[in-house]
Nucleic acid binder design. Structure first.
Length: 271
DNA sequence: AAAGCGCCCTGAAGGC
DNA sequence: TGCCTTCAGGGCGCTT
């Protein structure tokens, strides 16, 4: 369930532990993740220095000089920094051991996550090549959503969760942003005005930004401590709150399934 | 091109 | 208490 804010907080938490460090060894205990872990990872990475950690969508990209480590957390993936001699526990699938006797450890119970080795240009890597803009960048705004949505009959909730439209809007924050913008999640994307898209784009930015700030302040050092992020139980207005009063008008929040995903909305203030 | 759905996997929750 | 079933969920990729 890591959403973009959790991924960004993981990136920020890893950065001081990893950047500038040389990789000593890579251990792959379970290569069968969402995609198989390529042997090239363990072959190419040792002796390289990690110079940077970027995030693109929900992918973490570690610049290793001769290539990039690319990690997606799926829905149950966790990255922790532990002393290298820490015995692995259940679902500890990949270790990246550093020369300072610390190890970046990837744990993923459900194995929806992935660990890639990208030897070439990351922007040409198939999974990254056709992604939409970052939601927090200036490339993403209401005008972009409006332009991209013309003729689209899919529900707006599916539309904003389409990574080719905009990346990083997961199931939780899609519901939250639509509530904040007062838009019904089932409304056809092509039937929403430019003005409402301005509000929606702003809501997406605000919701994600608030969560990143909250995560950064409350969980600043979690990676070095025990690695358990928990989930950011932020001030969610609608997600998971079926039957609770809408914070805006008191109407009971409803749950509905859209695109095989739980969706929460207020039937009164979201139109 | 767009939309819908299957699938990968495990743990938690619910039913009996 | 314990077994069995159901379901959630990110996101690719196949099908329609």
């Amino acid at each position: 369930m890591p959403e973009l804010p959790e991924v960004e907080t993981t990136r920020a938490g890893l950065e001081p532990h990893v950047v500038g460090r040389r990789v000593k060894q890579v251990i792959v205990r379970q290569p069968q993740l969402r995609w198989p872990v390529s042997p090239a990872l363990a072959e190419s990475l040792p002796s390289q220095v990690i110079s940077d950690i970027h995030r693109r969508a929900k992918y973490l990209l570690f610049d290793a000089g001769n290539g990039h480590i690319c990690i997606h957390l799926g829905m149950s993936g966790r990255l922790r920094v532990v002393p290298t001699d820490t015995p692995p526990t259940k679902h500890d699938h990949v270790d990246i051991a550093l020369e300072n006797n610390q190890t970046v450890r990837f744990n993923d119970a459900r194995r929806f996550g992935s660990v890639f080795w990208i030897s070439g240009d990351v922007t040409e890597f198939p999974l990254l090549a056709s992604l939409g803009p970052e939601p927090l960048s200036d490339d993403f705004d209401g005008a972009w959503l409006h332009a991209r949505s013309r003729g689209r009959r899919a529900p707006i909730k599916n539309f904003i969760m389409d990574s080719h439209v905009v990346v990083g809007v997961g199931n939780i924050y899609a519901s939250e942003a639509l509530h904040a913008a007062g838009i019904h999640p089932k409304r056809a994307a092509g039937r929403i005005s430019a003005r409402r898209y301005d509000r929606l784009a702003a809501a997406i930015k605000r919701v994600l930004d608030d969560a990143i700030i909250a995560g950064g302040t409350t969980l600043r050092d979690y990676i070095g401590v025990d690695g358990d992020t928990g989930y950011f139980q932020l001030s969610l207005a609608v997600y998971g709150k079926a039957g609770h009063a809408c914070p805006r008008d008191g109407e009971p929040i409803r749950r509905v399934v859209i695109g095989q995903r739980s969706t929460f909305y207020c039937p009164r203030c979201q139109t």
